[in-house]
């Protein structure tokens, strides 16, 4: 009896999770693939079109606008956030820094605001005339108060990248700091005795030590950036912004699927996004050489 108990227990324990996973995780994934082969009008009317959704999508200039906006945002965010958060983490990890926990909390605090509420806040911060950003730039550098960040097409993405920078730099820094702290201190002592300077210590001890976390953060940031929606949608007043400068892939999905009612097309957009993200992640992993060496 005892052995039977211990044998059936794990299945019983997993059952709630696995059953709800099958219904709300696995089934939708499979259903999504099928759905992407249909044109639909709401959940009821469906018409099989094969791969037409994908072919149409590749020819739709709006999709390519969304893609280029999203890619710009992702590239800009990752390129600014990561060096900055790693730099801050390295500064905080210096043994002579006091108040490490306080700084860590301060850097992390924007993240507590959350994406949606940050967007609501930045709607005002970025406003012309009385917005905090323009007022600060005016006070510090004498720039005009009238810069319209969210209604000038060229400034929309820089503005979004800046908000994301404010939101996520501290979040990533927490990961980097934890990784830095887990690097064995004796390695630095050994490197010092072996005659390595600061730069070579960073290159030969720090970087290899935090490499798994570095890759983890890079890949996750890229995947997350490619799913940009809330920030743009809210900041641009539930629209895609001037000249569609704030149209993102997920916003394109939302507009077609839920404002336009074509769930099949939405599924096709979703899988196209998934494919892009997968390819990008694989490229990143290949470049960094993960998986080739054993850790």
């Amino acid at each position: 009896m005892q052995m039977r108990n211990a044998r059936t227990a794990p299945y019983l324990f997993l059952a709630p999770f696995v059953i709800s996973f099958l219904i709300f995780g696995a089934y939708p994934i499979v259903r999504s693939m099928i759905l992407s082969l249909y044109i639909t009008s709401g959940p009821e009317a469906q018409h099989f079109v094969g791969l037409d959704n994908y072919l149409y999508l590749l020819r739709d200039p709006d999709f390519w606008t969304a893609f280029s906006n999203t890619a710009t945002f992702a590239a800009g965010s990752v390129a600014l956030q990561l060096p900055l958060s790693l730099g801050l983490a390295i500064l905080l990890n210096r043994p002579d820094v006091r108040g490490r926990d306080v700084f860590r909390f301060i850097f992390f605090s924007p993240n507590l605001m959350g994406l949606v509420f940050s967007a609501l806040l930045f709607m005002l911060i970025l406003a012309p005339r009385f917005g905090l950003l323009n007022a600060s730039l005016h006070a510090l550098f004498g720039l005009p108060l009238t810069t319209r960040w969210l209604s000038t097409p060229e400034l929309v993405m820089p503005a979004l990248i800046m908000v994301a920078l404010w939101l996520y730099t501290g979040f990533n820094m927490v990961y980097f700091l934890a990784a830095l702290q887990s690097v064995d201190g004796e390695l630095y002592e050994a490197a010092t005795i072996d005659g390595a300077g600061r730069w070579s210590q960073f290159w030969h001890v720090t970087l290899p030590g935090i490499k798994p976390v570095l890759i983890f953060v890079v890949v996750l940031s890229t995947i997350g950036s490619f799913q940009l929606f809330e920030l743009a949608f809210l900041l641009l007043g539930n629209s895609s912004g001037p000249d569609q400068a704030g149209l993102t892939i997920v916003m394109y999905l939302y507009q077609n699927g839920f404002l336009g009612g074509d769930l099949g097309y939405a599924a096709a957009i979703g899988w196209t996004l998934a494919g892009m993200v997968l390819i990008l992640s694989l490229i990143q992993l290949r470049i960094t050489g993960t998986g080739k060496e054993d850790r």
């Binding site: 709300f24 759905l35 998934a274």
Partner: peptide, 14 residues
């Protein structure tokens, strides 16, 4: 590994 937006349409249907 599958991004969330993939699930929006089928989940809405469900």
């Amino acid at each position: 590994m599958i991004p969330g937006p993939v699930l929006l349409a089928p989940m809405y249907e469900l």
